[in-house]
Design a protein around this nucleic acid. Structure first.
Lengths: 345, 345
DNA sequence: ATTAGCACTCACTTGCGTTGAGTGCTAAAG
DNA sequence: CTTTAGCACTCAACGCAAGTGAGTGCTAAT
């Protein structure tokens, strides 16, 4: 699908896409010649537009309206025509300002980053915290809540904290717990949670005989503590910006979009795609997979500390999204968050 | 404003409110006589309705429409006419089912409870976790993240966990931290966070001379750790149910309501009102304070463990809300959560 | 006190003509 | 061969008028 477009067609396509992104209204041939100083008559532009339509870059909603870009049109625009703006200094500042983390927990930081993403882009901001299972274990603590009920707290290298309540069969004493905690905290750091689990399984199987009772209990306990994948954390911010978009003015589409943004799982699936990739990724319309988010595009980028904790953040908005503005925002924010995670180690 | 309403007027008012809650459409005199077996002609009902309108319980949107309840009408209905249904067993079951907390953190439980509230009521569920400052301190842990950067983890009696990153001036060694942790964990449990802070301030002021260096550092460190109120946590679930309500079909009102539900602070203010009260509280329309939530009612109840941690949960929906169904849901859920918090101790 | 009857009101719907932005086609001009 | 001017055509959107019907308030009869 190379680029069988000559310069003039490209210019016109670019003009249409950009005007449409601004106005959200079908662009007519006259409007083009007026707004941009091509030395062409509307009729010529019409011919070019007819060609672009035939090639699948444009459609007209009805005979007597202007043209709007198709998904393919946007894709071509993003891949070949778009020039990304620099991130304005004010945005850069408020991002750096807002992500100071002194006195905040990592969760707060993630939430705050989501708010910043949405506030600056004026679309909806998404942040998916690193999957806990892939983060590097740093420390574990047990708190005895009541008879037989324990609170387990994990801390990862990157400063993420997770906790859960478990009910092991045995009622450990304060002393036991302390010993177990020490034992585990000396042996486990440096591995990912996944590796830790594997290690525990191996030791329980193969070294049974060489372990004393408490060591065995320690392993069994941490096995239970690590059981069950911890659900991903997604922070969504600025959902109401979505409703401000003219493409979602109908009550129906408003409900649809809000339902989608409410279902964390769908968002996780979406963001997972760009987990592994490097740098900013752009999913335009139905490119964003199986997903139910019709009419939306996603600009996402992974972030990661040097200890391997990988999360994803991004901005979701209508296909008619201001790509040139949002891309640098996402890009910069991702590296910012990476920097924050790194600083922890 | 006593009750200058005779039985017949009451019955008719009740019928109108309940029919309107069901249909969301103005109720006419004929509809009343048809749907309910009062032995009255439409004309009589009309007379009564005119009286009720004069008294401020009803209004008609325009001359040739039926009547709808005013806020005052709802208030009278809720206070004097409403009979609360029992909570259907299926709801009770799914609530009890869903709030099993084994393997979940308290935050997960709160979130889950929000989901249940909204899922069952089909309105929007709110849960405000206990303010951390008012919870009883149980344990503190320090994790050294990097040079000069500490992660502090607090655990409250009720199993709530909070963490934050701080940067004390000094770079404590692992050993120091252990000592400090032990020192604090022996002295502080049993007090609320607020009390702890006070105590620390007093000791630092009055017992300066009697403390060794590490003890002093311990106190200073925990002072910093406790500084700054931790933001309240509000869990909001099922916001899209709001958009399903016929009163919010216009794009404008949809945006308005979503913006409100997005701003945690407004919700906190709202829920704070019922923090101190006992049992289910009902805020109808503008009763729900200064707040911007026009056209909404809130049904809320505080929950609390025996250790004093107090939170609030509730359901928010249109004024035309199914009070008789939602009240028992909120009531039961609040006591359920209280039970969960209690069980921890 | 209640009810039947009746004139009246007014949001809502339907249909119809007008408007205007925009198109595609054709034929002339460069 | 490309570009442009001209023109007939299309069709969503807007506004207006008439018709419809649910519901009311008032009056007079029961």
């Amino acid at each position: 699908m190379g680029a069988p477009l000559n310069d003039r067609s490209q210019n016109i396509l670019e003009a249409i896409v950009e005007d449409y992104i601004r106005t959200a209204e079908p662009i007519g041939s006259r409007a083009i010649t007026k707004r941009h100083a091509f030395d062409l008559s509307p009729a010529t532009v019409r011919n070019v537009m007819a060609d672009l339509e035939e090639m699948g870059f444009l459609v007209s909603p009805h005979t007597s309206a202007g043209r709007i870009p198709t998904e393919k049109g946007y894709q071509y625009y993003v891949e070949s025509l778009l020039q990304v703006n620099d991130l304005p200094a004010e945005f850069r500042n408020s991002l750096e300002e807002g992500s100071r983390f002194d006195g905040k927990s990592m969760e707060n930081v993630m939430q705050e980053v989501g708010n910043l993403l949405s506030g600056i882009s004026r679309y909806t901001g998404l942040v998916m915290a690193p999957r806990f299972n892939s983060t590097v274990f740093r420390q574990i603590e047990f708190v005895r809540l009541s008879k037989g009920r324990l609170l387990v707290i994990f801390v990862s290298e990157s400063g993420l904290v997770q906790n859960k309540v478990i009910e092991p069969g045995i009622d450990f004493s304060h002393r036991d717990l302390e010993t177990i905690t020490n034992y585990l905290n000396h042996r486990l750091p440096g591995m990912t949670i996944a590796q830790v689990r594997e290690r525990i399984a191996v030791e329980l199987r193969e070294e049974q005989s060489r372990l004393n009772k408490l060591q065995k209990q320690a392993l069994e306990l941490s096995d239970q503590a690590l059981q069950g994948d911890v659900a991903e954390q997604v922070y969504v911010a600025g959902t109401s910006h979505m409703l401000e978009q003219p493409e979602f003015t109908s009550p129906d589409s408003m409900m649809k979009i809000m339902r989608t943004l409410e279902s964390k799982q769908q968002l996780i699936d979406l963001l997972d795609c760009s987990q592994t990739a490097r740098g900013v990724q752009i999913f335009i319309g139905s490119q964003s997979a199986h997903s139910e988010i019709e009419g939306c595009s996603l600009i996402a980028a992974p972030f990661s500390g040097n200890k391997g904790a990988v999360g994803t953040l991004g901005v979701i908005g209508p296909i008619r999204m201001n790509y040139s503005q949002v891309i640098p925002i996402v890009d910069f924010t991702a590296s910012l968050v990476s920097r924050i995670l790194d600083r922890e180690s």
